[in-house]
Every structure is written in structure tokens, then in C-alpha cells.
Amino acid sequence: MDEMPALDKMIIYLDQLAISQIFKIKTGTYPSEAPHHAFWTEVTNLLQQGVLLQQVLCPASDIHRDESMVFTRGDELTLTHEMLGGDTSFRSSSEIEGDQVWAYLRGFVSGKEPILDLSVDSILDGHRNEWLSRLHISAAMDWTGIAKDVRDRREMSADNMVPLYERWRADPKTSFKSVLKTELESFGSSRVTAYLHFAEMARRGLGSIPNQFVE
């Protein structure tokens, strides 16, 4: 039997809006008179064709999971996305971030430039270049117990964006580049503060363990 040709699939990250629109097209719940119906119909068909031709994968992530669980048809929405990702998904965002933090920490300690693995395969669970299986097995989980917490965190994130929006509105001459620079610098310092906080919590926790339980 002839060997199957080698694969080199492209990875496409779909944001939640795209997933929702594709879901509505596939379930027939997107009004045909809506302004962008034709566009999303074409996107849905092209992505599905690309996946079936073994050329494209659109993996899901924990970010998608958190967004989907607050939707009443979240399991169906998740399954729609899974079918575009085959048996491949993104590693958790906290794992990816943690790997990058450790890379920068090792670089800082050694006084060398950090070495980051930016290949897409390094952040995938599963194998990008495997032929699609004939069967897709999905295990659903009831997330309703934590859905409220996810909604609350989402609302808090939206509230945190208000000062940025107000600043931009107050000075329309402010360039996107300067605002982005400020936000990225703030993001970095807040992350460092958070890591130091949790490191101190861990230190105190270890210090409170009785000596007989510490090797």
C-alpha cells in the first residue's frame, strides 16, 4: 500500500465571535437577512472544507471553554468547535504563560536572552499533522456550577477596560501605539506583582507546616 502524503496543516485561532457565528450558520439560527450572513456562510464552508482536506485545524482552548460554558447551548457550541480542531486543542493559557515566565526567569538568572519556543506545535495538545480520525468521541461536562463565577470575572474584566476607554475618549489624539505600550507595561508589572504575592503565600504556607511533616 502506498504511503499517505506528509501533512503540514495550518493552525487558525478562531475567536469566540467567529465560533458563535459559525455555530449559528451550521444550526440554521443565523437570520438569512442579517447583513453578514453571506460572509459567515462562506467562512463556515471554507473552514470545513479546509479541515476535511487535511489542510487546516482550528483548535479550541480553555478561553473558548470559559466563554462557551455561560451559553445555554454551550455543549453544542463546543462540539461545533471541536469538529474544526480534530483531536487537537491548545494547551491551557496558564501553562503557556507559565512556560514563558520560566524562560524569562532562567534568562534573567543567567544574564542571557530568554529562549522562547514560539513554534505552534509547542502549545498544542495532540498532533497537528495526523490524519483526521473517522470517529470523534466527545465527553461533555456540566459547567453550570461555575458558570456564574465565569460571568462575574467577565464583567469584572469589562469594568477594568472602562478607564482605558475613558482615557482614549478624553484625548482622541492619543495614538494606539502609545496606549498599547502603556497597557503592555502595566500588564507586565501587574503580573510580576501577582507572582510575588503568590510566592509569598506559598512561602508562608510551607512555613506553617509542622516540622515532622517536612522532609
Rank of each mutant, 00 (worst) to 15 (best):
M1I: 11
P5C: 10
L7C: 02
K9P: 00
K9N: 04
D15L: 00
I19T: 00
Q21A: 07
F23K: 05
T27D: 04
Y30W: 10
Y30R: 10
H36Q: 10
E42M: 07
E42Q: 08
V43R: 05
N45V: 13
L46E: 13
L47A: 05
Q49H: 10
C58T: 06
P59A: 06
I63H: 08
D66M: 02
F71Q: 01
T72W: 13
T72N: 08
D75N: 05
E76S: 12
E76K: 05
T78G: 09
L79I: 07
H81N: 02
L84R: 08
L84M: 09
F90K: 14
R91D: 04
R91E: 07
A103D: 02
A103S: 12
F108D: 08
V109R: 02
S110F: 02
G111C: 00
G111K: 02
E113W: 06
L116H: 01
D117W: 00
V120S: 08
D121A: 13
D121W: 06
S122K: 03
N129S: 13
W131D: 08
L132H: 14
S133G: 14
R134A: 03
L135T: 07
H136N: 07
I137W: 03
S138H: 14
A140R: 04
A140S: 01
W143L: 05
I146M: 08
A147M: 15
D149F: 08
D149V: 11
D149P: 11
R153Q: 12
S157Q: 15
D159H: 14
Y165W: 14
W168I: 15
K173T: 14
K177Q: 05
K177T: 13
K177I: 09
S178W: 10
L180A: 05
K181R: 15
L184S: 07
G188L: 14
G188N: 15
S189P: 01
Y195A: 00
Y195V: 04
L196R: 03
A199T: 09
R204K: 14
L206A: 15
G207W: 01
I209Y: 15
Q212E: 14
Q212A: 09
V214R: 13
